[in-house]
Design a protein around this nucleic acid. Structure first.
Length: 201
DNA sequence: CCCTGATTCGC
DNA sequence: GCGAATCAGG
């Protein structure tokens, strides 16, 4: 793959939109994020400015009015925008490979998963931070609902439901760092000893 | 661990 | 010019 005009344009566009190098690489296809970054630098647009975004007035001594050939910007009054809202995401997350490999969703067989004991005990709904619990029930709505075999090192292994029923699944969201669970479930799984300390028995 | 962009340097 | 390897952060 080479940097055809079209590809370069797309690169500029996506970079201007604030897409990450890896995302751009994915959409362009045939290049790695390194390639994208390298190109970005060579093009001299490492600084994500240029597009509609207002990024001036940051330097102490600004000058160079830079009369844009097609960007008059007839505004010069007050600045009603305390927050320029730097999140112009017209497209939520519509992407994914149009072609890509039709098969081979699982390249490396991950038969790890000790399927034995590391599975967490369902927390009895008591003496757990209510906020954390609320977060969990909320998160469970977005859970991937993976089966045992679909779990990997980076999927939340929090079980939900009754294993005896087919209404049983694992959270499956992205785990937090090295933990076995996602952020929400880490919250209820690992209670700070401080809160469970005074539980004298 | 995952990710990010920045730089270097052989090609 | 290109981009993998590496560096430096989050």
């Amino acid at each position: 793959m080479s940097w055809s005009d079209e590809r370069v344009e797309l690169l500029k566009k996506l970079w201007g939109e604030g897409q990450s190098a890896s995302q751009i690489a994915k959409e362009l296809g045939g290049v790695t994020r390194n390639a994208v970054i390298g190109k970005v630098h060579r093009l001299g647009l490492s600084n994500r400015n240029g597009s509609g975004g207002a990024a001036a007035a940051t330097a102490p001594a600004e000058s160079a009015p830079k009369p844009k050939p097609s960007a008059p910007k007839p505004e010069a009054k007050a600045k009603p925008a305390p927050k320029p809202a730097p999140k112009p995401e017209p497209k939520p997350t519509v992407e994914e490979a149009p072609e890509a490999a039709p098969a081979a969703p699982v390249s490396r067989v991950r038969q790890i998963i000790p399927a034995g004991q590391p599975l967490p005990p369902q927390p009895s709904t008591n003496e757990i931070d209510p906020a954390a619990l609320a977060k969990v029930s909320e998160v469970e709505k977005k859970a991937k609902r993976l089966s045992l075999m679909e779990l990997t090192e980076r999927t939340c292994k929090w079980p939900v439901g009754d294993p005896a029923t087919d209404d049983f699944w694992f959270c499956g969201l992205s785990v937090q760092s090295g933990k076995p669970y996602c952020e929400a479930h880490v919250g209820v799984a690992f209670q700070p000893m401080s809160s469970r300390r005074d539980r004298k028995r």
